[in-house]
């Protein structure tokens, strides 16, 4: 599958943005962190920035961005539409909660309700993002039960890393937060291993014999291409640059996405709270974003669409 930059950016950035939003809302409502207005402004500003940049970049990759509003109409059947609707709805309670926090320093009472609603909205939005991919029966590597949990775990993991950097910078760090990062990152890594194991050993893939319905006559292979130049179907669904580097990219994704951030988090735990800890926590968040970009790219590169069977692929 062709990995559009807009989609890679959208899913990784908005994932982190929603993860950060979830933690700010939940810990803010629980009163575990102070409602310092500057921290609220920075935290929500960054969260909204990530989410909005992601949404805008995915809207601008459309053939007709000016019609994007139509995408909220088909929530009855389409996961993409549901994602759009939830993303827009979530702005409302999240915005109100942020206003209460920043202008009045109040995260209780009715403001707390907004906070909880925003956290629920953010979880559901990321869930829909995962389901857009998981619901596609045409791509066995995506039509896999690990996909949506991984989208959720990685969104919360990257969000937790940014959250940790933020609270440490404001002198409100707690080992609880760093251990939260370590737990969610570890869970994410385990899930990623589970996913890779599942797609590597999964059920037998289809062959050109299945695609053409001619399997009972013998082994089917492409004899002559249908056209001399690649068409849209081949460029979009048949894209496989990087698939041959999948093993290397898995290692890079693991290192940058999980192992280095885990190591940095453990160093933060071992340290006295202070500027150095905040810098390490910030580094952990930044490196994990790079890892998530690699992971997302790989998610596309390893996806084999069944239509490629008509174009010479031996299995998909």
């Amino acid at each position: 599958m062709h990995p559009a930059y807009s989609v890679l950016l959208f899913t990784t950035l908005s994932g982190a943005g929603y993860g950060l939003m979830i933690l700010l809302c939940l810990f803010g409502v629980a009163g575990v962190i102070s409602s310092d207005p500057v921290m609220g402004l920075l935290g929500f500003g960054f969260s909204f920035g990530l989410v909005t940049f992601g949404l805008m970049s995915s809207a601008f990759h459309l053939g007709h961005p000016e019609r994007a509003w139509r995408a909220v109409t088909q929530w009855r059947s389409s996961w993409l539409s549901r994602e759009g609707v939830l993303a827009l709805i979530t702005y409302v309670p999240a915005g109100l909660f942020a206003i209460g926090w920043i202008t009045m320093g109040d995260t209780s009472g009715v403001w707390a309700l907004f906070g909880v609603a925003a956290a629920v909205g953010a979880v559901l939005t990321v869930y829909c993002t995962g389901m857009i991919y998981q619901s596609l029966r045409t791509i066995s590597q995506w039509h896999n039960d690990w996909v949506t949990p991984i989208y959720l775990l990685l969104a919360i993991a990257t969000g937790a890393l940014w959250f940790n950097a933020l609270v440490l910078a404001f002198g409100e760090g707690r080992s609880l937060f760093t251990w939260l990062c370590v737990s969610v990152l570890s869970l994410g890594m385990v899930a990623k291993f589970g996913y890779w194991h599942s797609i590597d050993t999964g059920k037998a893939l289809r062959t050109p014999g299945h695609a053409t319905g001619l399997a009972r006559l013998g082994t089917v292979r492409q004899w002559e291409t249908a056209h001399t130049q690649a068409n849209y179907v081949q460029r979009e669904m048949g894209f496989q640059i990087a698939r041959k580097h999948a093993h290397k990219l898995r290692v890079y994704a693991l290192l940058a996405g999980f192992i280095v951030p885990l190591f940095l988090c453990l160093s933060v735990v071992a340290m006295e709270e202070g500027r150095a800890a905040a810098i390490l926590a910030f580094l952990a968040a930044a490196v994990s974003m790079l890892g998530m970009l690699i992971e997302r790219w790989l998610f596309f590169a390893e996806a084999q669409h069944v239509v490629t069977l008509y174009y010479g692929a031996e299995s998909a």
């Binding site: 053939g63 389409s78 993409l80 596609l136 029966r137 045409t138 849209y232 979009e236 669904m237």
Partner: peptide, 26 residues
């Protein structure tokens, strides 16, 4: 007139029946 050119339908089609028009954006 209402297609936004998101291409998701082409991902959902196993038969490669849908082709995106680069000039028309639909």
């Amino acid at each position: 007139d209402t297609c936004i050119g998101c291409k998701l339908c082409s991902w959902a089609c196993p038969y490669g029946a849908r082709e995106y028009d680069e000039d028309d954006g639909v």
